[in-house]
């Protein structure tokens, strides 16, 4: 089947089987390798992207759901101002080790910052937001520190990206 969709602001057209995974379309057909595969069953969050402005595991989204959809991946986030602040907070707090889970954590961070503007969140709420992202290296503590810091910075994340 032929699918027309928007990825990181650009309209693209891909040929795929109905049950092909968004993850593979991004990585293999579109060369967007920032999105990683850790488990292939929606448990680890390394493949997290935005689909129609909602956070999803790209390993669980079939091609047949993609028609006219709007996908934003880590590779499309780099130029936003909020991304630079997130990057700085992750770097300075030592929130990265092997880095394989990191793009997924960054996507969830963006979602959290967007949804929490003006609210003050406790650690429990931060942890709930990251329930779907697994990290095996850091013990999570420094990621939480980075996110806590970002939440105090009043960062503006737009409601929609590339629209």
């Amino acid at each position: 089947m032929n699918i027309d969709l928007t990825v990181n602001g650009k309209p693209v057209s891909v040929e795929a089987e109905p049950l092909d995974r968004l993850l593979d379309i991004l990585r293999d057909k579109l060369g967007l390798t920032g999105t990683k595969e850790g488990c292939g069953e929606g448990e680890c969050g390394a493949c997290t992207v935005f689909m129609n402005n909602k956070l999803v595991n790209s390993c669980l989204v079939p091609a047949m759901h993609l028609h006219n959809s709007n996908i934003v991946t880590i590779d499309g986030m780099r130029d936003f101002d909020f991304f630079k602040l997130i990057s700085k907070a992750y770097e300075e707090n030592g929130a990265v080790q092997c880095g394989f889970c990191t793009p997924g954590f960054v996507m969830t961070t963006i979602n959290l910052l967007r949804n929490s503007s003006g609210k003050s969140l406790g650690d429990e709420e931060i942890k709930e937001a990251f329930a779907g992202n697994i990290c095996r290296c850091t013990g999570y503590d420094k990621i939480i520190k980075a996110v806590r810091q970002l939440l105090t910075m009043n960062i503006r994340v737009p409601e929609r990206f590339y629209e």
């Binding site: 929606g42 969050g45 689909m51 999803v56 595991n57 669980l60 989204v61 969830t108 779907g132």
Partner: peptide, 9 residues
């Protein structure tokens, strides 16, 4: 149940 990523789907 699961995570936000899954609950969105």
């Amino acid at each position: 149940m699961a995570s936000e990523q899954i609950r969105n789907r």
